[in-house]
Structure formats: structure tokens, C-alpha cells
């Protein structure tokens, strides 16, 4: 039994170890995808054969505040040599923060054969494994994606309002300072700003990174995660859950944890998050 399999996760298959990745570097059916916060990391050195998916330029629509549409996703898959049958393994910096964001966007298009490398870049580097600067080139594929399906895992503001009215559970994964409204945003980042500070009423504040072990970036065990999300914060796996942060990236990490590691039944990521809610007129806010 591998370490991952012994941790008690609801869906352990969604994680692979660094050993597994090292053993599958030449597996044509596996495409390794690096997704980082720091745009310099991939070009400065990445796992051999890995391609990069950039959250800003690849996953976001460049005009509207939205994700790419089916055609854009198909093109992204095609140019990275990914087929509908490929096993896509995500990894990245910051405890796989952006890797789980990319993973979540891929699920909007139903690429369910997706996994995350536990520990991400941090663990790979700590183990002294090779990084290369050569950018791989793959033959284009003809990837046919379904239309983007938001409803199962993505929440919009009307969904949040409805959820709130029904007493649904909410998780605010931002820092305590953001949750309390003490900190809004940096003046130099008006695009990520909000006019009001605070949080959506009833939301529990569980900063996203609590799910990871800081020493190697791996996910905590199911027992440790249950201690945080269930015992300490009182969340119920059978109840519908909406997670949010500032723009929806940190909350995709929590979405991943709740959905796959703890087996919550219905978790949605509100990617509008505080940059939408904190600017809306006449919505309830708590401080």
C-alpha cells in the first residue's frame, strides 16, 4: 500500500506520488501539466516532458471575466498533445494551489482522467529530482470536448444567494485578515479589489493552506483534514457546500480537498468570490 492509499482519502486515485510521476515520464498516455503562480518557474526548470498551463493566459477568457469556452479548451488540449484518454497529472508551486485550480477548470470540461502530484514542485525539488528547461513539443491531437458544464462544481452569485437563503454551508478560504475585513486588497491591484470588506454571512473561515503539510507541500491525511473541516469547523460532508476566496483560485484547492479527499457530496467553487461579492450592491455581509 502506498503512502497516499494509506491516508484514508475518499478518492485516493486522484493523487499520484512523485515516485509514480518519475516512473511515468515516458508514458505516452500521461501528460504532465505544470501550473504555477510564479510565471518564471516553469521556464526556469520543470519535470521533463511537462507542459505548462498558465492560469492567466490559458485558462481565463481574455475579454470577459470567465473561463475559456469549449473551442479554447479543445485548442489548449490539442496543442499540448492531450487526447480525451490521456491521464493528465497536474503539479505546481505553493502546495499545488494553481495546479488544483487548473484541475478544477479541466473538470468543467469533464476531463475526469486527471490527477494531482502530491507535494507538487516543492516535494519534487526537495527530493533532488531533475528539472529541465527544454520545452517539449507534442504532435497536435484532435480533442473533442463537451460544452463547458459549470453547474455541478461552479457557483454563481445567484447560486450563492439561494444557498445562503437555504442555510447551506459556506467556506471562506481566505486569510483571517481578509475574512474579518481588516484587509481588502492592495491599492496597486485594483483589478482584485472590493469596495466592502468582510465575508458572506455564516461562512466558516478555513484558510486553504491548512490542508497541506508546509514541510513538503503534501496533503494532510484524511484524519487530520476531518479534524479541521468536520470536528473543528463543523462542516457536514452530506450537506451542499460552496467555497470561495478572492478570485476563486484558493477555493479550488479547498474544493479539491473537500470533494476528493474527504468525499463531500456536493461542493461548488464560487469563483466570483470576494472580488464580486464585495462589490455587489445590497448583498449581506458580515464582519
Amino acid at each position: 500500500m502506498t503512502d497516499i492509499a494509506s491516508r484514508g482519502y475518499s478518492n485516493p486515485d486522484v493523487l499520484v506520488s512523485t515516485d509514480w510521476v518519475a516512473e511515468h515520464l515516458d508514458d505516452a498516455n500521461v501528460r504532465i501539466v505544470e501550473s504555477n503562480e510564479d510565471q518564471l518557474l516553469y521556464p526556469a526548470g520543470h519535470i521533463a516532458g511537462a507542459v505548462q498551463v498558465d492560469w492567466a493566459t490559458d485558462l481565463n477568457d481574455q475579454l470577459r471575466r470567465d473561463y475559456l469556452q469549449r473551442e479554447g479548451f479543445e485548442e489548449l488540449m490539442s496543442r499540448n498533445g492531450i487526447t480525451r484518454d490521456s491521464t493528465v497529472v497536474f503539479y505546481g508551486d505553493r502546495n499545488n494551489w494553481w495546479a488544483t485550480y487548473a484541475y478544477w477548470v479541466f473538470q468543467l470540461f469533464g476531463h475526469s482522467n486527471s490527477k494531482v502530484m502530491d507535494g507538487g514542485r516543492q516535494k519534487w525539488e526537495q527530493e533532488g529530482r531533475d528539472l529541465v528547461r527544454e520545452v517539449p513539443s507534442y504532435e497536435k491531437t484532435s480533442y473533442v470536448a463537451p460544452d463547458r458544464s459549470d453547474a455541478p462544481i461552479r457557483a454563481f452569485r445567484e447560486d450563492v444567494l439561494g444557498h445562503l437563503a437555504e442555510g447551506g454551508q459556506l467556506v471562506d478560504v481566505r486569510s483571517p485578515q481578509e475574512y474579518s475585513g481588516e484587509r481588502l486588497h492592495m491599492p496597486d491591484f485594483p483589478n482584485e479589489g472590493a469596495l466592502r470588506g468582510g465575508h458572506i454571512p455564516t461562512a466558516r473561515n478555513i484558510p486553504w493552506a491548512r490542508a497541506a503539510n508546509p514541510e513538503d507541500g503534501t496533503f494532510k491525511t484524511a484524519t487530520e483534514l476531518k479534524d479541521i473541516y468536520l470536528n473543528e469547523q463543523g462542516l457536514t460532508p452530506d450537506d451542499d457546500t460552496i467555497a470561495y476566496c478572492r478570485i476563486g483560485e484558493r477555493s479550488s484547492h479547498t474544493w479539491f480537498v473537500l470533494t476528493h479527499l474527504l468525499g463531500f457530496k456536493n461542493v461548488r467553487n464560487y469563483d466570483g468570490s470576494w472580488t464580486e461579492w464585495g462589490n455587489l450592491v445590497n448583498v449581506p455581509i458580515e464582519k
Binding site: 503562480e37 510565471q39 492567466a56 486588497h185 492592495m186 496597486d188 491591484f189 482584485e192 478572492r246
Partner: peptide
């Protein structure tokens, strides 16, 4: 000016990263 960070790294830099550089 703090715009130096954007001039060098581009407007697409994440807020967390930009905050550290600033």
C-alpha cells in the same frame, strides 16, 4: 514607483506575487 513590478512582470502577475515584490 510601485508600477515597476508591473512594468517588469506584466499586469497578469498574481496579487500575492506582486505584493511580495512590491
Amino acid at each position: 514607483s510601485g508600477d515597476l513590478v508591473f512594468d517588469i512582470y506584466g499586469r497578469e502577475i498574481s496579487m500575492g506575487k506582486g505584493e511580495g515584490l512590491l
